[in-house]
Amino acid sequence: MILDAHTHLFDRFEYLEGMTAEQMIATMDGAGVETAVLFTVKGLLGGLNAGDYRATNEEIAETAARFPGRFIPFASVNPRDGDAALEEMERAVKDLGCRGFKLHPWWTSFPANSPAALDVARQGDRLEVPFIIHSGTPPTSTPLQIAEMARVAPRATLILAHMGLSDLWKEALHAAARYPNILLETCGTPSLAIQIAVDRLGADRVVYGSDMPFGGHSNVRFQIQKIRDLGLPEASEQLVLSGNMRRLLGIESNTQ
């Protein structure tokens, strides 16, 4: 059964309609997805109308607890908050049971290689939890900027969401080749880039994600089909679609 490394919980985001947790589960069931890494949207927004990430971290943890085995809660913080962000990271992992962090340098508005972001990376290193970080969008979220976080946090796995997108996947390949604690996630990534990542770095470095509910109800099926259309050897496809994330998070599949 598939594990999706990249989903967001929101009912409405600006003009976009989201999904409830129940709707997400129905979509997952329809596409053969057992478990999804779940994080916020609202808690990633910086600026004057910034979301309260403490509140959204609680919401994510509570949602995951309501549906055992279906969601893996990841928390979010704004690195610009300094010590308060580092304290929230500790609370999110130790008190709320979050298993990692989602950061979005573009939306939250911090360069991924800024001192504040590196402090957050070091805190993740101490807590030994993974990050998934939006990548591919200049000027704050390029793969080689995020690679600086991987450099200072060798015990924390850094997942480059979108593998740098269409424009920066070559950077993502270089970042992952340099730092063994970087994984590459596939939503919004061209097929050729995913194929080359598997060929050059190995299937154990690539993880499937969908970005649900962005892209609507059909998107999960599209993102899975994109992986299947690569025609990878079965063992490699299994690693990408679930094995690598299960190993990272230490979770077994309930069903085969």
Binding site: S166, P190, S191, L192, S218, R221, F222, K226, D229, L230
Partner: peptide, 13 residues
């Protein structure tokens, strides 16, 4: 760069 079948599947959805 992308796959014809994948891109067609996207529209079909």
């Amino acid at each position: 760069t992308s796959r014809i079948a994948s891109e067609l599947f996207k529209i079909g959805l």
